[in-house]
Each structure stands twice: as C-alpha cells, then as structure tokens.
Design a protein around this nucleic acid. Sequence first.
DNA 1: TTGTATGCGTTATCAT
DNA 2: ATGATAACGCATACAA
Lengths: 336, 336
Amino acid sequence: MVKISDISKLCGVSPATVSKALNGASDISQETAKRVRETAAKLGYLPNASARALKLGRSYNIGVLFSDTTGGGISHEYFSRILDSVKVEAERLGYDITFISKDLGKRSMDYYQHAKYRSCDGVIIASANFQDPAIIRLATSEIPTVTLDYTFDSRTSILSDNAQGMESLVRFVYDKGHRKIAFLHGEMTSVTQKRLASFKKTCAALGLEIPAEFIRPAIYHDPRTSGLQTRALMALSIRPTCIIYPDDLSFLGGMSELERHGLSIPDDISVVGYDGIPLSQVLRPRLTTYRQAGEKMGTEAARLLIEQIEQPEIWLPQQITVTGELLPGDTVRSIG
Amino acid sequence: MVKISDISKLCGVSPATVSKALNGASDISQETAKRVRETAAKLGYLPNASARALKLGRSYNIGVLFSDTTGGGISHEYFSRILDSVKVEAERLGYDITFISKDLGKRSMDYYQHAKYRSCDGVIIASANFQDPAIIRLATSEIPTVTLDYTFDSRTSILSDNAQGMESLVRFVYDKGHRKIAFLHGEMTSVTQKRLASFKKTCAALGLEIPAEFIRPAIYHDPRTSGLQTRALMALSIRPTCIIYPDDLSFLGGMSELERHGLSIPDDISVVGYDGIPLSQVLRPRLTTYRQAGEKMGTEAARLLIEQIEQPEIWLPQQITVTGELLPGDTVRSIG
DNA sequence: TTGTATGCGTTATCAT
DNA sequence: ATGATAACGCATACAA
C-alpha cells in the first residue's frame, strides 16, 4: 500500500506536511496542499484505518448489535430494513459498521468488551434482550449507544410508536363496525406491553368491553402459535369478528387455520397484522396492517449516534418516536 | 483501557514478556505465563485490535459485499440467511465482519479501496453485479475473496446448484403429469442462464416441446412483473398447466393475477416457486419450491475464505456446489 | 527465560 | 509555512 511517506518523498516535503495537507490543515500553503493532494490521488493513496484509529482513538466504525432473541437471525424483514438503513446512513457520514456479538473465536467476551476490542466509536442496539446483564453493561457504559424500541436511563433511543400504531388499528377496525375484537400479542417485552396497554386503553375509550379470552399470548414471527391461538378463538362460544395478530408473518399461521374452518377473509372474519412488510401488500386480499417505519428508525439511530460521537459536548439524550402508517388493505370488512 | 504495559508493571516483568505469555509463546516459564494471564484476566485486559492490525498486517476482519443490484437491500430472505450464517461462522473462527461499499462518507472509493482501507483480510462477495468493473477489480485483486453464485477465474466460489434445482422441479412437475410448463425467469445473470439452460435441457430430455411464448422474462423479487407475465400467459390460446416462477416472492404477484382470472391453485393451474423462503411454507396451499441452502452457502463461504487467509500456501481455488432440496408443497396438482 | 529496541502508519506538538 | 519528533499499543528480532 502507498503511504504518507511515499507521497512525502515524491513531493519533496515531510510526512507531517503531507498529513496536514491531506487533512486540510490551515497552516499549509495552497500550492503545497494542491501538489500533495494530486500526488496522493495519482498514487491511489488511502489512509490506513488501523493506524488512524490507533493514533486518534477514533475508529470511524460503529457496532451494530442484533442479538436476536427470536432466533431467526437478521432475517426478519423489519430488522433487515433497519440494518439496511443504518448501513446507508452510517456510510453516508463516513462510518463503517461491524457486528457486535458475544464470543469472538476462542476469546470469550461480552458485548461491551467486543465493542472495546474493535474500538467502536458507538453502538446501535437493536433486537436484543434488554434484561441481559451483558446488554445492560454495554448500554450503561461510557460507549455512546442508541437503542431501538427500548429506553435506558439517560440514553438515546428510537422508538416506533407502538401506542399510536395499535390505537390507529383499533380505531380503524371500530370504524368499520367491529365490536368484538381479539388481540394476539407477542412475548412480554416492553414493546408488547405498550401495544397491549394501547389496545386496552383504546377499547375502553371506545366503550368496548373485551372479554379476557379475546386477549391471548402468541409469539412474534411464529405462525404456528398464532395458528393455535386462532383455533382457540374459533372454539369460543362467542367468536370475535376481527383478530389483530402480533405481526404480519404470524397472521399467515392464522390464515391457514381460518381457511381450515372454511372461513373466508374478510367475508367471514376480519384480520389485521402489524409491521407492514412488503409481503403483506402482495397478498390478496391485501393485509390491513400498520407499517413500522424501519428505514426511518435506522436512519435516525445512525444519525443520532454519530452526532453523539462527534459532538459529545452538546449532546443530550433523547427519545425519538417514529410514527408509521396504517395500511388499510382489504382484510377488514365493513359490518353492520 | 488496560494495556500490556499495565500488566507488565503489576507483574514486574517487561511488556515483551507479557505479550509472549498472552500469545502462548514457548519461551516463557509456566509460572510467569500463569501469573501474567491471571493478572490480565483480573484487569479485564483486551488487546487493541487496531494496534494489532497495524503491527501484524492482519485485521481478523472480513468484508462482506452486498451491492444489491435488485435494490431491495439485504432484505431478501435468501441473502439474509447467507449473511447470518457468514456472521456466525466467521465469529466462530475469530473474525469480525464489516460491510464493504462504495463511497464511504466524502471519500469516494471503490470496493477494493474500501477493503484495503479497512485492512480486510478477505472479502465475501454476495449479491453483486459481477460485470461491474469495481467488482471485477476486487475479485481479481490480491485480496482473498470468495464469491457466491458466480465464479471468477482461479478464485473460490460457492454455487447453489441451479441446474439440479431446476431439473428436480421440472421432473417433479412432469411426474405429476404436466406437459405444458411455462417458465418465468429473472434478469439475465449467470444464475438465470443456468436455470434456463437446465429448464430447456430437462424438458428436451423428457421429450417436451415448450413453445417460445412459455418462456418469458421477469424480474427477481418483483411480484408486479411476474403478475404481468402471468397475465400474458393467460392470454395465450394454449395456456400452460403449470408456471414456474423466478422465485417465491415473484409468485405472489402471479397468485393475485391468477385469482383475478378466477383460477384456483392448484385445481385450475399449478405453480412452482424458487428459494424456499419460510413464507412459502406458511402459505396455504404450501408452495412447491426449491429451497436454496443459504445457511450452508454462507458457512462454507466463511470457512473457505478464512482457510485461504490463514493457510495461503496450501490454498487452491475451488468451486463448491451446494445442493438444496425440493419442497413438494401442494401447488402442483396431479393431472391426466 | 527474560528484556531491550524497533517499527507498523498516522497525527499532534513544538520547534524552526 | 514547514519539519523533526514522539506517541498510539502491540509483537518480534535480537541481545542478555
């Protein structure tokens, strides 16, 4: 690789001068700076990121943590979208991204150590178990962090508006005339708690009394469980007219179960998803769902993290709520 | 951060001794080595990856390139699966992964330069436009690379067995009694060429004469185009009894088009997908498709790349073909 | 068996 | 405006 000293020789100046010229220092003559830059370009010079990181104590590298309790790796479309937008925004601002995990090779380390080992300037924590002590250690360390869908004290977080999302879905369904609304919710995370609270609150505000059997636990991204709970709902003496699923993918499990009962969507029963993954709008009938603004969340996370890294003195923790949009679809029928 | 010199002071030995002890050099006494390791553990010592990379010329960091011609980012489940398994295997072997892209911040660089800038020990190239000069430059450079689904001369590649996949699908459909088989193929990449050639070859071997109108161009992961081509097929005077789609997602576009024609799957028309994404097996009826072994491809890619990095002297380029499996599903009906 | 010295490529400080 | 020097943390060749 061509390095600074190569340029300095060719230009007949010292390495220090080259470094300054390349970094736009003010105490270098226009002329010299130009000559240096041209030579650097001609030689195809690239700074050595390791040397830079060592010297500056800044790596221009941010860690991304997808620890994935749900097992499916980064394969869920919602998280893929987030990862993709984090990547785009980080790169736009001059940062690379590296995955953070436990246990790199033989070295056993926790997330915090891994981030330190790679001198990450900051870490974006998405899709993690926020009760995990290793996650807590990282999130409360001196490393700048931004969490998604969870807030640590005095830390920046990006939240998708679960309350608003659930409320708009319930109101949409209510406006179509539905009164017997069932809700299958995911595992009890803080996200689930918000959705559940919003579901109950909105129902109460609308004067709906939802029987306890209409609110049932399922598992995110697991069509099987939602299928089973759908069956349980169908076995009730009083059936719901509309089912809200934990997410779009889970709905598919419910879908086949409903078909098995000979029920047609939305003529015999209405359904609602959550996430708004592309698939949901390709299905026929189009799924009524709430599209989480994954791209926006990723972009904001990267932007705020880098802001915090680059301007620590004016940084303040903030919680940003990103609103999604209701996709009306065709799976909720207007009823009497 | 705690560094080697901190340990050396505490142990009353020189930094060199500490370094050797930590790296398991043979010329250190058992006793000293033990003491050093214990002190290091107690202090929570972690090597500085940048300093190491600078000194060793090895970063223990591999680049992953998803340049994404299809625009959907890393959101396609097939690629997500690959990325996930690359990550797991690389980490198991002690490597981190970093995304490689063009244009990091203000610096405009090509893929090769980016990989050099981050001192990547090697790069896995997945989902790229292999005609792109920037890709070619990287793949033919001195940096160890492994490509997925494309082979550069004297380079290692991991290929999904497209010929076998297509053949098994065609034979499956043929065995169900179908003779009029249509094939919507994706953009003309080498993957597509293999599938197309295998389609034609298998049909010929089975004595089938496929009219030219049955073979139509579509776009991978684009339900809309496949929907349009499905419509075109339905407008033919002689219709196919089975349609093979470019991929599972594209099938969904065809599905709604077929429903619009009042055709039921598989009673009125049979369909086949490609990829075997989870969604395909959650749909009812279950989609008949070919599951590409994404996990295996990612694992193998990481393994071979690291092998090449760590043992360059015994390395030989190889092309590994990873076979998937046919998922029978229920969308191909037995006919006459 | 241990320690000393050097350099990886870069930049910041302080002279000139 | 430019340059000499040191230092970031680590690993190695070589000396002791």
